[in-house]
Write a protein that binds this DNA or RNA. Structure first.
Length: 592
RNA sequence: GGCCUUGUAGCUCAACUGGAUAGAGUACUUGACUACGAAUCAAGCGGUUGAAGGUUCGACUCCUUCCAAGGUCACCA
């Protein structure tokens, strides 16, 4: 509960505590009064008992009495054990609701003058995106939106792992088996085409291993000496030497993949301000490390390898440069971080990466701090759990990977089927219908994933997981569409403007309070990097609205003042629903 | 083995960061469409919050020890 009322109430309350008990308190914690009790805000008085030396009930009674005397908006209070429940006057709630005028920007924070960079997605270029990437993309994009709403200047980036043995495997297999196949000739999306040859490589590789083992080699020898694997390694070497033919093939196949990724990103509704490519950044960081050695932050072992001592942080020793002077992943990440600082002048950075890299980022952040960068204090690893299937982990080798494009398509066609069965979009054009089905199908998927705490691994059952009823994206979208329908109808009515709506119904007060909570929810979600807070908030809001809708006549009430008020309340609810959903990357329809 | 994360209704998730009788959805059982959109609403059923101790006015939340699941400890990325 962070309404403006709690601020003024806190000031009054501080004075009350001082006058009653000579108690100086820093801040006062208000919480929303639970539904089963009367009141709006609750003060827990247990912390003040030592000072008051009275029973909880008497203490609460005393504080309540003075609060009511001194604060005009306190209409009434009641005491239950050590809980002081305070009721705020209806006129206050109505006035604050009325004060919300800029619906488009309601809830957003003042500019903080801070630039925060959010990295997400960051795929390899040897295969298409899958369900794990979807969780990553949705989280990263949403956190970026939330930070932006909270007042940060946000830059969204990804680092594309476009070089290395994995893409060479696809390249080798394509040379052997593709007979010149391209996205155009095959009709396959580019990333899927390249993925197909990555699978083909693996198949051929396994066959060769089996053959060599049949000839008496050990498994390790076989893996090492399989001809196709040797070819991939040679290709990697040639790439590093800048061999023209290899580089040309590499560029051609990566271009296919990027075209495919672009299509997936566009459909998913995510975007980036800048792409980084490992082929351009993998040599970064070496210079920084050398400088670190000179400064004594890092040290060199006898064999020439460079390390960072993080025993004090309980992270052990970490290699930064190999014996032969080449860099490792960590070196590269150090260089990239600094590169980004130079590109954007960032104040902080968020890495959206799976939790299997928790240790890596602890080390990275510790090293950047050791190097003395101010922005290193504001680095955050947005770590998320794996997405499991009923059969267990997703494994590309066993073909149990849920493909991102397939999944989106499936969601959308499910939405279409349900929508057509209900027949509520009959008046729309084909293009409008398609847009609506996309909106609903993707809304279901996005909400399903974002409502869960990122740290938790989640189970995804393709058949059962995603509902369109209950605590779901479509439920929230439906409420929005229904409000919009109501408002369209209201627009055609002429309602005499007579006086002020007097007494609020309980559900109306609840709705106002929830709308007023939106700004603080955004701040909290930003501070916690937690889209799930937004998801839970908007769900609760919509549930309350549906109760309101059911209990009260909105357009048909005999009191015109009530009608005016309820239309205003409905319009503002719809605006908050739309804004909140947009923070999750979900759009809401006018009709569905 | 060391370290990190997670464990809440049959299932999927909450719990405002230590506050009141742990809440939603789903599934199951019922009731509500001649009312502004039933992808809705209302009611019932469902819990030893992994286990045992401890801290305190008060614990899902903090501490200790166990149990379970996952991750991680590469001169891989």
């Amino acid at each position: 509960m962070q309404h403006t009322i709690s601020k003024t109430l806190s000031e009054t309350c501080t004075g009350v505590l001082k006058d009653l008990y000579q108690l100086e308190v820093e801040s006062i914690e208000w919480q929303a009064t639970r539904k089963e009790f009367a009141g709006d805000l609750t003060l827990v008085v247990f912390p003040y008992l030592k000072a008051s030396r009275k029973k909880p009930e008497d203490t609460a009674q005393e504080i309540g009495t003075l609060l009511q005397e001194r604060h005009a908006e306190v209409k009434a209070f009641n005491v239950v054990k050590g809980f002081l429940n305070i009721s705020i006057s209806d006129s206050y709630w109505q006035a604050v609701l009325h004060g919300i005028q800029d619906l488009e920007n309601y809830g957003k924070g003042e500019s903080l003058g801070r630039t925060t960079l959010v990295e997400y997605s960051s795929p390899n270029t040897n295969k298409p995106l899958h369900l794990g990437h979807i969780r990553n993309n949705l989280l990263g994009y949403s956190v970026a939106e939330i930070l932006s709403a909270a007042g940060h200047t946000v830059k969204k980036v990804q680092i594309i792992n476009d070089r290395g043995i994995h893409i060479c495997k696809s390249m080798v297999a394509w040379q052997h088996f593709a007979e010149g196949e391209t996205p155009e000739t095959s009709g396959l999306k580019g990333d899927h085409l390249v993925g197909k040859y990555y699978v083909a490589f693996d198949k051929a590789y396994k066959e060769q291993i089996a053959q060599l083992m049949a000839e008496g080699k050990t498994e390790e020898e076989a893996k090492e000496h399989a001809p196709i694997f040797q070819e991939a390694r040679e290709m990697l070497l040639k790439w590093e030497q800048g061999d023209a033919a290899v580089v040309a093939l590499w560029q051609k196949m990566n271009a296919w993949v990027y075209a495919g990724f672009d299509a997936s990103y566009r459909r998913l509704g995510v975007n980036f301000d800048k792409n980084y490519y490992e082929s351009e950044t993998y040599l970064l960081g070496k210079k920084i490390v050398e400088e670190g050695v000179a400064k004594g932050v890092f040290f060199k072992k006898e064999d020439g390898s460079v390390w960072c001592d993080l025993e004090a942080e309980k992270l052990g020793e970490k290699l930064l440069l190999r014996r032969d002077g080449t860099s490792v992943y960590m070196t590269q990440d150090i260089g990239t971080a600094i590169q980004r600082y130079e590109d954007f002048g960032i104040d902080g950075m968020i890495y959206t990466v799976g939790n299997e890299q928790d240790y890596h980022f602890q080390v990275l952040f510790a090293i950047l701090k050791k190097l003395g960068y101010a922005w290193a204090e504001n680095l955050y690893h947005l770590s998320y759990g794996m997405v499991d299937l009923p059969s267990g982990k997703m494994k590309s080798r066993e073909g149990t990977v849920v493909d991102a494009d397939d999944l989106m398509e499936q969601m959308i066609s499910t939405a279409q089927k349900i929508s057509e069965d209900l027949g509520k979009t009959d008046g729309l054009s084909e293009a409008e219908k398609n847009a609506t089905h996309e909106m609903i199908g993707l809304g279901a998927l996005k909400y399903f994933i974002l409502k869960v705490d990122p740290r938790k691994r989640m189970l995804f059952n393709p058949e059962e997981s995603i509902d369109f009823q209950g605590n779901t994206g479509p439920f929230i979208q439906y409420t929005h569409a229904r409000i919009k329908s109501l408002l369209r109808k209201a627009g055609q009515m002429s309602i005499p403007n007579t006086g002020v709506y007097q007494s609020l119904a309980g559900i109306e007060r609840d709705l106002i309070k929830q709308i007023l909570n939106f700004p603080s929810i955004i701040q909290q979600a930003a501070a916690d990097h937690a889209p799930s807070l937004i998801a839970n908030y908007v769900y609760d809001l919509v549930k309350t609205y549906n109760g309101f809708y059911q209990q009260l006549a909105i357009l048909n009430d005999e009191n015109p003042a009530a009608v005016h008020f309820r239309i205003d309340l409905s319009r503002k609810t719809a605006a908050v629903v739309s804004s909140a959903m947009r923070l999750l990357g979900i759009t809401v329809p006018e009709q569905m």
